[in-house]
Amino acid sequence: MRAHPAATLLPLLGLAAFFLLWEAVPLSGLVNPAFLPPPSVLPAAFLREWHSGQWMAAIGGSLGHYVLGLAIGVGLGIAAGTVTGLFRTAEGLTAWVVRVLRPVPGLAWVPFAIIWFGVNPSAAVFIIAIGVFWIVYFASHGAIRGVDRDLLELADAFGFRSAPERLIKVVWPAAMPGILVGVRTALGQAWMAVVAAEIFGVPGLGQRMMQASTLLATDIVVVYMLTMALLYGLIDAAFTALQARVLQWRA
């Protein structure tokens, strides 16, 4: 697919308009600049963070939590979704357990994370993994339940009858589009979980954001908001490209 020039230009135009409007609102006196720092003050705030070395340190810390938490949550989500998607007994056994645990918000796990892991990166990884787990679990479960039974019969007919063979030859490839949709949602959800995971003092973007906000340094808060947005944007764009490659077999 070749993108139309207007199609690549339009989002940039929208972004420029967004920043212009954002600049105009506090400058016009409509809102106190302390409540909403205009974009023009952000470069200075960013440079202060950069020179103190805190920006890089925060990114390094958070990326570590993010990648590990995401990997664990996605891995366990796919594994659990596969088991309950394939076996009715497992689905039945877990039906109410899932209903009990699913609505618990990520923040509610914070005290447990501290008690179990202490105030250290493992606790942050745990919070992120839990936030991601459910999304991937439900996506995988649904995708695997929906695999065309005719394709399983085909595998049967050519002698692939053990569970691992069926998983590798048919079930996972067939469920891949649905699983990847879940993983993509998880990529965004995991950044939200990063903030929750770091507010209790594990070093990273979330912690820096909380420190700045208790000092009412709104410009720094916004610098970290945009940092997170940038990281999310890059990761999501890379993932979308990967997804398109993996799923090129779809019409």
Binding site: F158, G159, K169, P173
Partner: peptide
């Protein structure tokens, strides 16, 4: 089968090779 029942994520040659993998 009545429907070709190819595996949509495999290229044609890999579809033909499906049974050989066993």
């Amino acid at each position: 089968f009545q429907d070709a029942r190819l595996l949509p994520w495999r290229r044609i040659l890999d579809n033909v090779a499906f049974g050989l993998e066993k």
